[in-house]
């Protein structure tokens, strides 16, 4: 489903070149739950941005379902993000003045053509994450865990093929984190491809596969046998 070849990205900071990505080759089959680990500055967030079409590489290719998204125009990339990808961020990134349901339907506002049942879809997405009774609440009236579930509903409402989560539990307590990760596992079991960025081994343990990065390179790539046991416990 996702294939990157020799992916490179260099940032120029204060006269020195920082190789955020230094030749990353990666293959993620459809429906896999992958955690990308690494210390800060290891290039994991840059990799996620490349996979989600938020940023474009200096070299190499990113193929999603056979299409090289590194070569897409601005508008085609926007369409790709809208239709194929859902993002979940560490700090939820909800619009404070909008209600939960209004936040969730934001991606559908940019869908062309705009689906006629967008409100219904947003409510369904909120229901799926267990917030069917919180649709009219504003972010400030929701707990951290609830806010992040609104963000997940927003990521899922457009029925993407790929969910990209950047430290989704970073701002949550351990109990809430566990609930959220279990939700991601369930979604992956339903066939959704998930890439989870984290620096926390505990969090990575929920994934089927754990990739570790350092200095813009993949340093280890292991299948996680504990994943199922972690869920069962």
């Amino acid at each position: 489903m996702i294939k990157t070849k020799c992916l490179r990205k260099t940032y120029h900071l204060g006269g020195t070149d920082i190789h955020a990505l230094d030749g990353v080759d990666l293959h993620i089959p459809k429906g896999q739950f992958v955690a990308i680990c690494g210390a800060s500055g290891s290039g994991k967030t840059t990799l996620m941005n490349m996979l989600g079409g938020l940023d474009q590489p200096d070299g190499g290719s990113v193929e999603v379902d056979g299409h090289d998204i590194a070569r897409l125009s601005h508008n085609a990339l926007a369409r790709f993000r809208n239709e194929s990808v859902g993002f979940v961020f560490q700090h939820f990134n909800l619009l404070a003045r909008r209600t939960a349901v209004s936040n969730v339907l934001l991606p559908l506002e940019y869908r062309r053509p705009k689906p006629g049942d967008h409100k219904k879809r947003a409510c369904r997405a909120l229901n799926d994450v267990g917030l069917g009774d919180r649709t009219a609440h504003r972010p400030a009236e929701l707990s951290g865990g609830q806010q992040q579930r609104v963000a997940i509903a927003r990521a899922l409402v457009g029925e993407p093929r790929l969910l990209l989560a950047d430290e989704p539990t970073g701002a949550l307590d351990s109990q809430t984190s566990a609930e959220l990760l279990e939700l991601l596992v369930r979604l992956s079991q339903q066939g959704l491809t998930i890439v989870l960025i984290t620096h926390d081994k505990e969090v990575a343990a929920y994934a089927r596969r754990v990739i570790t990065m350092s200095d813009g390179k993949i340093v280890s790539d292991q299948m996680n046998t504990e994943a199922n046991t972690k869920l069962a416990s």
Binding site: L54, H74, A78, R81, N82, F87, N93, L106, Y110, G158
Partner: peptide, 9 residues
């Protein structure tokens, strides 16, 4: 955020 959910320029 709007760009990330698919807003065009």
């Amino acid at each position: 955020l709007r760009l990330s959910v698919g807003a065009r320029r």
